[in-house]
């Protein structure tokens, strides 16, 4: 369920591998998977023979077709307020975290890219300034990439645990727990998108006498923007799931209600919340397709 930090998602570094190299890489990945499975003693048969309680499974999946809006506790409690509260908290945490992460991701991603110091896009300065750019530029990019790596290498649940023990159960803690790793993930992908954006328009502006800020902001950035937007929207979907899961720590997101109902074995309630989450994600997906089509991003 959780988004994997560091997964390239829909847009990774695009096909740079030749045919035979690709075949070798694919074989390698399968081999690695097989070795890992053997090492862990994974056996698809024991997965079924060692099941502890068939009843739980039957009850749980049996409830899938009967989600309920009336509490199973017998108190005739209406679930809609809880659903709405969960949706609202999930949305608010995801939106707050993504807003921070997109801003930080753009800044870090730009610093981690090489467009602002490498190649023909910038320049037109004195020899000293050029030397400065070519030594300072790569160093800053290196530091930015290291920082991005640090942010990315810790999963949002681990960030949540660390921040919770430091700051307690505040809203800021939850937002940061998502925003920190997501900033890293977004920055990494954004920097690749900025570096891979077609440079012709930027070079043309430069040839017409444009300064560096214009070349980068008008010639390069709009060319990367459709990819950046599409990826940020995809990550927003992941952030919704992350926010929902943070409910396990006690935040009033959908995860909180899911775990509460689960503990009471109210499986039909669990399914209500799961379907709500699914609906939320489908709506976001729909919205992002609409947005992309309207802006001709596809």
């Amino acid at each position: 369920m959780n988004p994997k930090p560091g997964s390239a998602g829909a847009k990774g570094p695009r096909g740079r591998l030749g045919g035979s190299t690709r075949a070798r890489v694919i074989t390698g990945i399968f081999a690695a998977g097989l070795i890992a499975a053997v090492h862990l003693g994974l056996n698809p048969i024991t997965l079924f023979t060692e099941i502890r309680s068939w009843k739980v499974i039957r009850d749980f999946f049996g409830a899938a077709l009967q989600p309920t809006l009336i509490s199973e506790s017998g108190s005739e409690l209406f679930l809609l307020p809880a659903v709405l509260e969960g949706v609202q908290a999930t949305l608010v945490f995801a939106i707050a975290a993504m807003s921070l992460a997109v801003i930080a991701g753009l800044i870090l991603g730009f610093l981690a890219s090489s467009v602002w110091w490498d190649g023909d896009l910038v320049g037109g300065e004195t020899g000293f300034q050029r030397a400065l750019r070519r030594t300072v530029g790569p160093s800053i990019t290196g530091v930015a990439r290291l920082f991005i790596g640090l942010l990315r290498s810790v999963h949002e649940l681990l960030w949540a645990m660390m921040l919770l023990s430091a700051f307690g159960l505040s809203h800021a803690t939850a937002v940061l727990a998502i925003a920190l790793p997501y900033s890293g993930i977004l920055a990494k992908i954004f920097s690749e998108m900025i570096d891979e954006a077609p440079r012709g328009a930027g070079l043309a502006l430069r040839a017409a006498g444009a300064g560096e800020a214009t070349v980068l902001a008008i010639g390069i950035f709009p060319r990367a923007l459709p990819d950046i937007t599409a990826y940020a929207l995809y990550r927003f979907e992941c952030a919704l799931r992350s926010a929902a899961v943070l409910g396990f720590f006690g935040y009033p997101t959908l995860g909180y209600f899911i775990s509460a109902s689960f503990e009471n074995l109210y499986y039909r309630e669990v399914w209500t919340y799961l379907y709500t989450l699914l609906g939320l994600i489908i709506i976001v997906e729909f919205w992002s397709v609409l947005l992309r089509r309207r802006h001709d991003f596809a």
Binding site: G200, A201, A204, A207, A208, G209, I218, P226
Partner: peptide, 19 residues
């Protein structure tokens, strides 16, 4: 830079910003 602003170029691949 000022000189370049007085020279216009048309490229085979246009080099516009399509977005």
């Amino acid at each position: 830079r000022r000189f370049r602003s007085t020279v216009a170029t048309i490229y085979q691949d246009l080099r516009l910003v399509p977005e």
